[in-house]
Design a protein around this nucleic acid. Structure first.
Length: 524
DNA sequence: CGAGTCGGACTTTCAAACTA
DNA sequence: AGTTTGAAAGTCCGACTCGG
């Protein structure tokens, strides 16, 4: 639908759900690179070094079932600080051959079916509607699942954990056997569901890509693994990568602190940049070459667009959902890949507000010798029965000029005359604010917006902020004021979905206050 | 310099609201 | 019954402080 562009990344996520096994690798790199730069080979990997690492990575610790080993018995490779940063990531991951297999099997079986596990991979995302129907109902919490897609997509391991919780399993180790299939099943379902909602075009693209990938990437690895994208193959991805490359290279790489003296920008975007070093600024062509040279299926583990979902941050190629859009909208806005989060951080990481990973013990805990206490944190149960104000609907994308849509969120439609936009809406201070930014900033400059919103008194904000109840008061006040959320708009662009709306909208204001507190409450 | 702390940006989850 | 919305709940970045 509208969000198709957004979806890309997500699709990838989903597709890679299984990839997660692989992606975790990437995922771990992040922390390593970033937080533990010293340990790793420093962010500034050269291609050569990168290659080596990857190779080593693969050779030495392809996939052990370490997760099982767990406590204490980590293999050396597991330990951060070794030169095998990537490896750590890799090994740190759950990848257990069995689990992986099961995982895949589960997918293929439950997912929209695909004869081979490999296909299973690709299929889920594309299986859309058919599957979705099956899906959404019945799993854990109730009705929905649209969002699950997000979750499921990112990390299989995570999924497991998460789902375990949801299913009441409780324990973190992700179990394989029957369990895995079960979890995955749901995961798949969600994914599919999600896809339904949002993407469609991209799905096709990616689907194709996946196929290619599979075809190309068979080098002696179990098909399932390949399928899962466990070992990404560079060549297949290249074209896709190129799509994503530009934004990153142009913007991120260039601006990365590592490579430039550019002072840390206030924007969070910088964060993502940290990963850039893996691939110094290159032209598209160069980049492509690079991957070709690397050639090995593993070479691009982190960088493969497919994996990127999870690994987005780490990979230099991370197709963020927004990237495409950004590019289109405003190259100058190019941005950081979307930050990926684990579904459930361990208690230690949570407490420290540091990045966690799916592994248990997680990399960080291993590093700090907290393996004993590295367990999933418990999540609150969302309260039910909270009333919400009426939702605004976005006008169909078609109404909005495609051109304008791509470049501008077209807030105006909604705001001004949109079905959802009350007349009074424009008068709101917010709109004034928004209007300038909406054009391109909104989607990507959430941080900027955040600042703005923080500085600006929206009127309704005050009342709402204090409310605990969450959105309820907020909503009602809005209604009273006849106020429409700022960004509800008809933005048809790709994926700006969550953040733009969430942030700028009520969420931002109300949310930020609430949010900021949340962690503290929990953590402290 | 590494570890701990923390504000808050950002992401994900998921129930309510909405639509077909 | 399926989809969309959007706030709650959560993750974790990055700045800061502190101790060795």
């Amino acid at each position: 639908m509208n969000n198709s562009s957004q979806q890309q990344p997500q699709l990838q996520q989903q597709q890679q759900q299984q990839d997660q096994h692989s992606s975790p690798t990437a995922a771990k790199q992040e922390p390593v690179i970033k937080q533990e730069p010293a340990q790793l080979t420093s962010p500034q990997h050269t291609f050569a070094s990168l290659q080596q690492q990857q190779q080593q990575h693969f050779q030495s610790a392809p996939y052990h079932g370490q997760q099982q080993q767990q406590s204490g018995s980590q293999t050396p490779s597991y330990i951060p600080g070794s030169s095998t940063g990537p490896m750590n990531a890799f090994s740190g991951l759950p990848p257990n051959p069995y689990s992986l297999h099961n995982h895949l099997l589960g997918l293929s079986m439950h997912g929209s079916a695909s004869p081979s596990s490999a296909q299973g991979l690709g299929s889920p995302p594309f299986a859309q509607s058919a599957a979705s129907g099956i899906v959404s109902r019945g799993n854990n919490s109730g009705s929905t699942t649209p969002s699950m897609a997000h979750a499921s997509a990112p990390s299989s391991p995570v999924m497991n954990n998460m789902q375990q919780q949801q299913f009441g399993n409780g324990n973190a180790q992700y179990s394989h056997n029957g369990g895995s299939s079960l979890y995955h099943h749901s995961a798949v379902q969600h994914q599919q569901h999600y896809h339904n909602q949002h993407s469609s075009q991209h799905q096709h693209q990616q689907h194709q890509q996946h196929q290619h990938q599979q075809q190309h990437s068979t080098q002696g690895l179990p098909s399932s693994n390949l399928a899962s994208g466990f070992y990404p193959t560079s060549p297949p991805h290249q074209h896709q990568q190129q799509q994503y490359q530009q934004p990153q290279q142009t913007a991120q790489h260039v601006s990365h602190p590592q490579f430039s003296s550019v002072p840390p920008a206030p924007l969070r975007q910088q964060q993502s940049l940290q990963y850039a070093p893996l691939v110094p600024p290159l032209t598209d062509a160069q980049y492509a070459q690079y991957h070709q040279l690397l050639g090995s299926p593993f070479s691009s583990a982190a960088s493969t667009p497919y994996h990127s979902n999870q690994s987005t941050p780490y990979s230099s190629m991370p197709p963020s959902p927004t990237l495409d859009y950004q590019q289109l909208a405003d190259p100058s806005q190019a941005q950081k890949p979307k930050r990926r989060q684990v579904k459930n951080a361990c208690v230690n990481c949570q407490k420290a507000c540091k990045k966690c990973d799916e592994g248990r013990p997680c990399t960080r805990c291993i590093k700090y010798g907290l393996t004993d206490t590295c367990v999933d944190s418990t999540r609150k149960v969302r309260k039910k029965g909270v009333k919400r104000g009426p939702y605004k609907r976005r006008p169909p994308p078609t109404q909005i000029g495609s051109a304008s849509a791509s470049t501008t969120p077209t807030l105006s439609h909604a705001v001004l005359g949109g079905p959802t936009g009350p007349a009074g809406y424009m008068s709101e201070p917010v709109t004034a604010l928004n209007s300038p930014t909406q054009s391109h900033m909104l989607p990507f400059t959430s941080s900027a917006m955040g600042h703005l919103s923080g500085q600006i008194d929206f009127g309704y904000d005050a009342g709402q902020g204090s409310s605990n109840g969450g959105g309820y008061q907020f909503q009602s006040s809005r209604m009273e004021n006849n106020y429409a959320p700022p960004y509800t708009t008809s933005y048809s662009g790709p994926g700006l979905y969550s953040s733009p709306y969430g942030m700028t909208g009520g969420n931002q204001n109300g949310g930020s206050t609430g949010n900021s507190n949340a962690p503290n409450n929990n953590l402290s």
